[in-house]
Amino acid sequence: MPADAAPPQDVKRKAAREVIDILHEIATLLNTKLDRQQLSYCVSLIENGAHPEALANVIRELREEYGTDSIDGGAEEAGAR
């Protein structure tokens, strides 16, 4: 993340949470089946320069591979958490 020293730490965290909230809502809208934590790591990955399309592909591949698909995926992830 680019150094943005000016705002205090909690303000920044609050903002980050809000962004994650928004993104999570969008993700739900789009039916991506990502939970909050997964999403935040994804955000972190992408903010650090990961290729979004590649990342999406990886996630899809892995879901397919390991059966963490649609319906039971959420439960599994929830359990894993």
Partner: peptide
């Protein structure tokens, strides 16, 4: 929101991953 500087990337990622 001022936090993210690569918002389109994030959106794009979500778009790619979308189940719709």
């Amino acid at each position: 929101q001022p936090v993210l500087d690569q918002k389109w990337r994030m959106l794009y990622f979500l778009h790619e991953l979308s189940g719709i």
